[in-house]
Computed example of a mutant assay.
Amino acid sequence: LSRDPVEVDKYIADPLCGFDASVSLWLDIFEMTFRAPQEAQLDRLPKHTPIHLVGGGQDPATDNGKAVIWLSKHLKAHGFSRIRTQIYQDMRHETLNEIGADAAIAAFADWCDEAIARS
């Protein structure tokens, strides 16, 4: 989740977090995972759409950022040209609740400024 123990404690204390996933939730996740990157779905999106992908190099949910890199390459192979991908090597899953989140937030703000300027 995060290397920041305060953020981990807040997550544990939150009654809306840490629940058991239902079968229906897993079915939705699998459908999204296997259907979303299909060519027919990607063809519906404008290829000039700016996309900012972020991952943690210590995030097991994305195979330590490898899934984020895969998605970036997959989108580029389908003609998307405005993709920025950043893997923060020491971060885990919740980049914005991580030690060093200021760098990720600043990079996102810079990306937003650039995306707006190019629109």
Rank of each mutant, 00 (worst) to 15 (best):
L1M: 15
S2H: 10
D4C: 09
D4H: 08
D4W: 08
P5W: 09
P5G: 12
V6C: 04
V8G: 00
D9Y: 02
K10V: 10
K10C: 10
K10H: 06
Y11V: 10
I12N: 10
A13Y: 03
A13C: 05
P15I: 14
L16V: 02
L16Y: 10
C17F: 08
A21K: 04
S22P: 02
V23Q: 13
V23L: 10
V23I: 09
S24D: 14
L25R: 08
L27C: 09
D28T: 08
I29D: 12
M32K: 12
T33A: 14
T33L: 14
T33E: 14
F34N: 11
F34L: 14
R35H: 13
R35D: 15
A36L: 15
A36S: 15
A36W: 12
Q38T: 15
Q38I: 02
A40C: 02
A40L: 09
Q41Y: 14
D43A: 13
L45E: 07
P46S: 12
P46C: 10
K47M: 09
K47Q: 06
H48M: 08
T49G: 01
T49I: 14
T49M: 14
P50M: 06
I51V: 13
H52E: 11
H52P: 00
H52I: 00
L53V: 02
V54D: 07
V54E: 14
G55C: 06
G56F: 05
D59Y: 06
D59E: 05
T62V: 05
T62F: 09
T62A: 08
D63F: 06
G65T: 01
G65C: 05
K66Y: 05
K66H: 05
K66L: 07
A67P: 00
V68Q: 01
I69A: 09
I69G: 01
I69Y: 04
W70I: 01
W70H: 10
L71D: 06
S72F: 03
S72A: 10
H74S: 05
L75P: 00
L75S: 00
K76D: 11
K76V: 03
A77F: 02
G79T: 01
F80V: 04
R82K: 12
I83E: 02
I83G: 03
R84S: 11
R84V: 06
T85I: 03
T85E: 11
T85V: 05
T85P: 01
Q86G: 01
Q86T: 12
I87H: 05
I87Q: 01
I87W: 04
I87L: 06
Y88M: 06
M91I: 03
M91W: 07
M91R: 00
M91H: 05
R92F: 03
E94A: 11
T95N: 06
L96Q: 12
L96V: 09
N97W: 09
N97M: 11
N97E: 12
I99P: 00
I99W: 05
A101K: 12
D102W: 06
A103W: 00
A103G: 02
A103C: 04
A103L: 04
I105L: 13
I105A: 10
A106P: 00
A106I: 03
A106E: 10
A106S: 08
A107I: 00
F108Y: 07
A109V: 11
D110L: 04
W111E: 04
W111D: 08
W111N: 07
A117R: 14
A117Q: 14
A117W: 04
R118S: 15
R118E: 15
S119Y: 08
